[in-house]
Measured scan of single mutants.
Amino acid sequence: QGDIVVALYPYDGIHPDDLSFKKGEKMKVLEEHGEWWKAKSLLTKKEGFIPSNYVAKLN
């Protein structure tokens, strides 16, 4: 089961498979690959890669 993270900063995706998000948006982490994680937005239901240093895990 994936962790839920919250965006600390907004992110505008650079690549087509990036997931753009707004500050405060919550996402479910699907896979962790070093600095880039695959996640699904709980708001938009879209999936893509996010920079892990832009988010914090919720406990």
Rank of each mutant, 00 (worst) to 15 (best):
Q1W: 14
Q1R: 12
Q1E: 13
G2L: 10
G2Y: 13
G2T: 10
G2F: 13
D3I: 15
I4Q: 04
I4Y: 09
V6M: 07
V6N: 02
V6Y: 11
A7L: 01
L8F: 04
L8V: 07
Y9H: 08
P10N: 15
P10L: 07
Y11C: 05
Y11I: 02
D12G: 08
G13Q: 06
I14S: 10
P16N: 08
P16E: 10
D17M: 11
D17F: 12
D17A: 11
D17C: 14
D18C: 13
L19D: 01
L19P: 01
S20F: 04
K22D: 08
K23E: 08
K23N: 04
K23V: 11
K23T: 08
G24R: 04
E25Q: 04
E25R: 02
E25H: 03
M27G: 00
K28M: 15
K28S: 08
K28L: 15
V29C: 04
L30I: 10
E31W: 10
E32L: 14
E32D: 14
H33W: 11
H33I: 10
G34T: 05
E35C: 15
W36M: 10
W36S: 06
W37S: 07
K38Y: 15
K38M: 13
K38P: 02
A39E: 00
A39D: 00
A39T: 04
K40I: 13
S41I: 04
L42H: 04
L42N: 03
L42Y: 06
T44V: 02
T44L: 03
T44H: 04
K45M: 14
K45W: 14
K45F: 15
K46W: 05
E47V: 14
E47A: 08
G48N: 01
G48W: 01
F49E: 03
I50M: 03
P51L: 05
P51S: 04
P51T: 01
P51R: 05
S52E: 05
S52K: 15
S52Y: 10
S52R: 14
Y54D: 02
Y54W: 06
V55S: 01
A56E: 12
A56H: 10
K57M: 09
K57H: 10
K57I: 10
L58T: 09
N59A: 12
